[in-house]
Design a binder for these strands. Structure first.
Length: 580
RNA sequence: CGGGGCGUAGCGCAGCCUGGUAGCGCGCCUGCCUUGGGCGCAGGAGGUCGGAGGUUCGAAUCCUCUCGCCCCGACCA
């Protein structure tokens, strides 16, 4: 590839709207350009990297016996109605109508379409197991696209689906995918950790996320260095103190209402005249789960974890209640809410399990400007269901071994689900088993965000000068820089090297522009190809060129005759592939 | 959806408060010069100031509405 004839628009300045490193660098290095919020054009350098990534993905998927498909992104409403997700997906799904007025959507994922194929064609257990995948564009109308390629509305996903006769088969398919994912991310230069995850709108019994630890990520993961426990904080548990710290001496005193005019927050109630510490208070939050009120109670200094409330309540769609809904159901405004006295009103109430058995607590009275003291959970909140609702914090005890947990930000690059029969039952995908009995197919679903691999690699591999692409997914292997274009010998030597390297299967970006050496060095560093070969007058006089690895500090002078062999082995050693 | 910020040349920005002929840097084009870390000099092209309406003799600037983008939160497979 010749720089002089390529579209590689590099930028000297940082784009104003880019905040994370991968976004800034991918734009500056000419890999991507933004078209609209969360919608990006992939430029030639970006596309070359994407193709490298998808090649790795294909190899590893094929290696576990998965077969590649290509399914429609444009879906009819009907199949999404069948699975129940036409409404469940809510605002996050792009919807449109055709000329006849029929409803269509842009697929966010492909359980429905693959299940339609499976139910139409899979009839016998003899046809199982199957593993099907595709690499395809997904559309999600994210409420808030951000961070360049990290959170977008249109992106490429490798999604695969397994079809098995029983749970044991699913376990095997799931494990195959886990191993394939470990290889894929490893080969792409990503360090990932596997964490237990919340299954969300996918349904199913369990899921594992593959996370790249980086501050650019949006997820929080809790992990234990001692025993290896790791979970997304949407799901993570911890060991916390549950002693009955505020228990009154002797008999439990009766509930007592007291006036708290203008007190609407935990902090206000813990301040001056009241002095009720946050850990003595109950925080009461009102949600709407599948159009019904759901009330959650956690300790005043704890944070409600909405994913956990969703799990506990079994709701498929959960949102905070509006102020008027709260007023209607609770009889008071936020700030004076409580769970006491709500039994028999048809409200579903959940209380965090750390509060079980505690007494001497304070909560809102469901009367504006009043709170209750002497609250006893076993006595006054027995109508509430105990569940794990709270967000874990760093330093709390690992649920397995008790060692302190670490909490860190991470980027989700893959997610594998055991779906079970969630889709095969609702959509009627069944096979006959050995005994001739109809049984729903047991499914799994497995996703990888392709552009996120690219962005994640840049987050992990860059420095002040630009990107440091891993060999395996770099757009090309070598930046070849003739430093003095006005010198015929330099030009000729570079051209000969370009030809020889290319013939040897090494992918070369020849910077044959009539630019000064400094410009070429800067652009090469920015673009981040793993190898740099500089051809200069001085070295050439001795038959030598400069060899430098992008990340290295030292520069080697090597003989022209060594270049090809050395480049070939560097490509191989770096996990790359020669192109012929 | 709540809060904040920003839309002025391809990119990054100033000008707006206090209305009066639209500017700077980078990039781009031409010439000279230079030639190993984003050279130097000279000349040049390029803007309906996001859009609509209003106030005014006059609007990038003031007012109203609207669209878009970014950040924080909420939300999120």
């Amino acid at each position: 590839m010749r720089m002089s004839k390529s579209f590689t628009p590099t930028l000297k300045e940082v784009p104003a709207d880019a905040t994370v490193a991968s976004h800034q660098l991918l734009v500056r290095a000419g890999y991507i350009r933004q078209l609209a919020a969360g919608i990006y054009s992939i430029l030639p350098l970006g596309q070359r990297s994407i193709l490298k990534i998808t090649a790795v993905v294909r190899e590893e998927m094929n290696a576990i016996g998965a077969q590649e498909f290509y399914l429609p992104a444009l879906n009819p409403r009907e199949i999404w109605e069948e699975s129940g997700r036409w409404t469940m997906m809510g605002e996050n799904m792009f919807r449109l109508k055709d000329r006849k007025g029929a409803d269509l959507c842009l697929a966010m994922t492909h359980e429905e379409v693959f299940t339609v194929l499976a139910r139409a064609e899979l009839r016998s257990y003899r046809q199982l197991p199957q593993a099907w995948y595709q690499i395809q564009t997904k559309f999600r109308d994210e409420p808030r696209p951000k961070s360049g390629l990290l959170r977008v509305r249109q992106f490429t996903m490798k999604d695969s689906y397994s079809f098995d006769l029983d749970r044991a088969g699913l376990d095997k398919s799931f494990e195959d995918h886990r191993q394939a994912y470990v290889r894929i991310f490893g080969r792409c230069g990503l360090k990932t950790i596997q964490v237990e995850a919340h299954s969300g709108a996918m349904g199913g019994s369990g899921s594992t996320e593959f996370m790249v630890p980086t501050d650019a990520g949006e997820d929080l993961i809790a992990s234990c260095e001692n025993c290896g426990y790791a979970a997304n904080t949407e799901k993570a548990e911890s060991q916390v103190d549950t002693t009955d710290k505020y228990k009154a001496a002797g008999e439990s005193p009766p509930l007592e209402e007291f006036a708290t005019p203008g007190v609407l927050t935990i902090e206000a109630l813990s301040a001056k005249p009241y002095g009720v510490t946050a850990d003595q208070q109950l925080k009461t939050l009102v949600y709407v789960g599948d159009d019904k009120p759901v009330i959650a109670i956690v300790r005043g200094d704890d944070q409600l974890n909405e994913a956990k409330l969703q799990t506990a309540s079994g709701a498929s769609v959960l949102r905070p209640a509006h102020p008027d809904e709260i007023q209607r159901w609770m009889g008071a405004r936020p700030g004076s809410l409580g769970g006491v006295g709500l039994s028999g009103k048809g409200l579903r109430i959940f209380i965090d399990r750390r509060l079980a058995g505690l007494t001497g607590l304070v909560t809102g009275a469901n009367r504006d400007g009043f709170h209750l003291r002497n609250v006893s959970v076993p006595r006054d909140l027995s109508h509430a269901t105990s569940a794990d609702l709270r967000m874990v914090n760093a330093g709390e005890g690992c649920p397995r071994c008790g060692s302190p947990l670490t909490v860190a930000k991470a980027l989700e690059v893959g997610h594998i689900f055991k779906l079970g029969t969630r889709y095969s039952e609702t959509m009627g995908a069944r096979v006959l088993d050995e005994s001739g009995k109809e049984t729903p197919i047991v499914m799994g679903s497995y996703g990888i965000g392709i552009e996120r691999i690219l962005a994640g690699a840049v987050e992990l591999h860059h420095d002040g000068d630009g990107i440091r692409m891993p060999m395996s997914i770099a757009p090309l292997h070598v930046a070849l820089l003739p430093l003095q274009m006005q010198d015929g010998a330099v030009r000729d030597a570079a051209e000969r090297l370009y030809r020889k390297l290319t013939d040897a299967g090494v992918e070369v970006l020849l910077d044959d522009r009539d630019e000064r050496a400094g410009v070429k060095f800067k652009d090469a560093d920015l673009i981040g190809l793993p190898l740099r070969i500089a051809v200069g007058k001085k070295g050439l006089a001795e038959g030598k060129v400069e060899w430098k690895q992008r990340g290295a500090n030292e520069v080697d002078l090597i003989a022209l005759t060594e270049v090809v062999a050395r480049a070939q082995s560097a490509v191989r050693d770096g996990g790359g592939r020669l192109s012929r």
